[in-house]
Design a protein around this nucleic acid. Sequence first.
DNA 1: CGACGGTTTGAGTCCGGTCAATTGTCGTGG
DNA 2: CCACGACAATTGACCGGACTCAAACCGTCG
Lengths: 254, 254
Amino acid sequence: MVLATVWTQGERAGAATMSLKAQTGNGHRCEACTARAVSICAAMHDADLGRLSSARTSQKIEAGETFLNEGDAATHFLNIIDGSVKIYKLMPDGRRQITGFLFAGDLLGLAVNDVYTYSAEALTPVTVCRFPRRQLERLLDDFPKMEKRLLAMASNELAAAQEQMMLLGRKTAHERVASFLLMLARRERRFGRSAAAVDLSMTRTDIADYLGLTTETASRVFTSLKKRGWIELAGSKVTLSDRDALEELATGID
Amino acid sequence: MVLATVWTQGERAGAATMSLKAQTGNGHRCEACTARAVSICAAMHDADLGRLSSARTSQKIEAGETFLNEGDAATHFLNIIDGSVKIYKLMPDGRRQITGFLFAGDLLGLAVNDVYTYSAEALTPVTVCRFPRRQLERLLDDFPKMEKRLLAMASNELAAAQEQMMLLGRKTAHERVASFLLMLARRERRFGRSAAAVDLSMTRTDIADYLGLTTETASRVFTSLKKRGWIELAGSKVTLSDRDALEELATGID
DNA sequence: CGACGGTTTGAGTCCGGTCAATTGTCGTGG
DNA sequence: CCACGACAATTGACCGGACTCAAACCGTCG
């Protein structure tokens, strides 16, 4: 049974977050939840009237730590409060595919048959809220709007996943890197930060594993783009000097 | 805002379909809806009490016809009653990535910002139910269980999409084809049909566009697998003679 | 400083793509 | 019934972009 469906009501992450906030009121907050990392975590407070709060635990995770393993029993789901995370799948011989980078406000814990379908590792020090999955189910029963919200998010994810399939299946190494940089820039902009310089908190190996390339190829492409004057590299920051050129490259307009 | 979350309560497509049926009762049916192609379409009947039925139209689509275009205004969503469909994305220069094959019972109409994110073309003659998206929204308000169902489907889709990313990003041509054949076999089994011989209703080009390969490579791999005695090709039917070997190949246990 | 992890760069190889020709499979109409 | 055309599938020869293996180059931190 395939769901290639569902729709999203033209939402932007920021706007949706706002509406959820409005819906759930502005009551007390989890002290771990910042204004930016909201959604479920914030909704939880007003929803459960303290009933669930005992079960919800905030947790610190250090950089490099794997805090979720593909195949493990999926007991909890997590809301990232702060920091960045990579989620990935492994093959027996060690080949790795990173299926996404997650940041503050993102949720994780996707499971099928009560088993996590991917592993998660902290890129930076991370703070998360952990919820027992069973309790989320109850919460969703009480708050259908929240379920709508999750459905909308899932739809967006699905669309993004299909975009990534296009990238992995059909784009060249140069096109992949350009697409990746623009994706990061768009994310920056969505959070109100200047899209001029984006932060590459992940390593070249991580980027490669996300784009279906090798570290060496990823590196070569970066220097190639630098030589063309389309990007500038300074430490972990990248400046998109010629966004138009990158856009053309990413979309395949040679 | 990323949703790598949500969960699915260990559902199988068949079982879930059943439960939805039970929930919505066994009242009157859309004459276009067969027992197999249910979910939304069936639910619609008991849900709207005739209120929406005027807007729902069943439609025949002939093989090869493109009935949904990426970028078009997303006014409707569709439930496939019968036949098979491919959904795909195109690049300006014509490169194509098929992001999924859909069959009876599947839904489509995923949109972001009120625009379809992919195109859809019929592989065989297809019958669909068309619903205005606005009315589905209303329906979901009345039937939160249905929303749960959609969320579960979306989660499954998300997991499948990540599996596909692994395939596209990291697997060899042989591994991709083996994975594809096993996926088809699993689908057959899920619908109660014998998993011995699976039907390849799609062309080599379609398969290649789904697996991120060229037609030639796909063809070569098929003959290679045939020579090893792992599969047998007869018309549009493939027999998986050595499922274990295929399984090892697909998972990367060389 | 030297050690260590990440990054860059180089040289050579190979898997899968490209181009091209052939074979196979229908459906159609004389 | 067969000839024909159209299109899908196969096969072959060759090529090239990305991978592999390897070395050098950083920046950071003890």
